Simulated scan of single mutants.
Amino acid sequence: MKFLTQILIVMVAFNSYGQQLNIGLHISNPIRDTKVGWYDIDAESFDDHDLKNRSIAYELTSTYALKKFDLRLRMNYMRINILEYQDNYFAGTRNQVDVQATQNKFSISPGIFKRINIEQLSLSFGFEAIYTYHGQFKMNLESLQSDSISGTVFFDSFGTSTIPSGYAIGLGTPFNFGFKIGNRFVIQAEYSPSMYYAKLGGTTVSTEYSNNPFYSDSGSWYTEDVYEGFAHLEHRFSFGLVYWMKL
């Protein structure tokens, strides 16, 4: 936080010599880097489990404009929140399965841009260096089988899996389109393909506890789930509002 404050102070210092500073707030597509369980299709998975994706991502940007180019600092917070569930009846049995997956990701990206203004429109393109911290990917599973009429529970099971945190360092090439509203506000849309060196995952810890009126058991196991290398690709889309200030 102290480092980010120092960067903003430097940006204000530059703008004290007549340059322009803007601050923007954007929403972007949440990018999930881990495929776990049945999370393969947005609306419904291939095995008839329903899927609710409540993931969301926010971005805060600050840009100062020099005579020939713009310098920008972008910060991104992403919350991965996915629920897959099934509730069906078969041969007098009710089967309920809930799988909840969550992850937090944070990015900081300094960049340099060339901006072209055409009346109310603007086009910017450039490069940004990106560092992303990928938090733990946590998955909670609950499975329940019961009599469809009496509600008597035959079997219930609870489990967790945790993939360790990791990081990614890369380079993005953003393309930004803006439309000016009045003297100070600009609506912006941005697309950025990025390539990373990523080191994600590690030793996944899984636990399970199950019981029913006649049986109970518990256990844990470990697997190696590592994603590492230079072939980590992402496509980011964002949309937001920018406010320009003259200092």
Rank of each mutant, 00 (worst) to 15 (best):
residue 16 S to P: 00
residue 43 A to W: 09
residue 235 H to M: 12
residue 6 Q to A: 15
residue 96 Q to Y: 02
residue 206 S to P: 02
residue 208 E to R: 10
residue 194 S to R: 04
residue 71 L to N: 07
residue 19 Q to T: 03
residue 83 L to W: 01
residue 110 P to C: 08
residue 22 N to Q: 11
residue 183 N to R: 13
residue 97 V to K: 00
residue 164 P to Q: 11
residue 164 P to E: 08
residue 20 Q to R: 09
residue 80 I to E: 03
residue 5 T to Q: 11
residue 151 G to H: 15
residue 84 E to G: 05
residue 109 S to A: 11
residue 243 Y to L: 10
residue 95 N to F: 06
residue 173 T to M: 10
residue 11 M to W: 01
residue 37 G to L: 08
residue 116 I to P: 01
residue 80 I to D: 05
residue 81 N to D: 14
residue 15 N to I: 02
residue 205 V to R: 03
residue 38 W to I: 13
residue 223 T to N: 11
residue 222 Y to S: 12
residue 189 A to W: 03
residue 160 T to E: 06
residue 136 Q to M: 07
residue 86 Q to R: 15
residue 111 G to F: 00
residue 27 I to H: 06
residue 48 D to S: 07
residue 204 T to D: 06
residue 89 Y to T: 15
residue 13 A to M: 14
residue 75 M to T: 13
residue 32 R to P: 02
residue 76 N to F: 05
residue 116 I to F: 11
residue 149 I to M: 14
residue 128 E to Q: 13
residue 75 M to W: 08
residue 151 G to T: 06
residue 137 F to T: 04
residue 56 I to V: 12
residue 129 A to Q: 14
residue 242 V to H: 01
residue 122 S to C: 04
residue 66 L to N: 14
residue 54 R to G: 11
residue 86 Q to C: 04
residue 244 W to T: 11
residue 136 Q to H: 10
residue 95 N to K: 03
residue 132 T to F: 00
residue 88 N to G: 10
residue 29 N to F: 05
residue 1 M to K: 10
residue 231 A to F: 03
residue 190 E to W: 10
residue 165 S to M: 12
residue 63 T to V: 03
residue 31 I to H: 09
residue 104 N to V: 06
residue 134 H to L: 04
residue 26 H to M: 09
residue 13 A to V: 14
residue 162 T to W: 04
residue 136 Q to F: 10
residue 194 S to H: 04
residue 140 N to K: 15
residue 212 N to A: 07
residue 129 A to V: 15
residue 113 F to I: 07
residue 135 G to N: 10
residue 42 D to S: 09
residue 206 S to C: 08
residue 14 F to R: 08
residue 139 M to Y: 00
residue 26 H to A: 04
residue 160 T to L: 02
residue 226 V to M: 09
residue 228 E to Q: 15
residue 101 A to Y: 00
residue 57 A to S: 13
residue 78 M to Y: 03
residue 75 M to A: 13
residue 59 E to G: 10
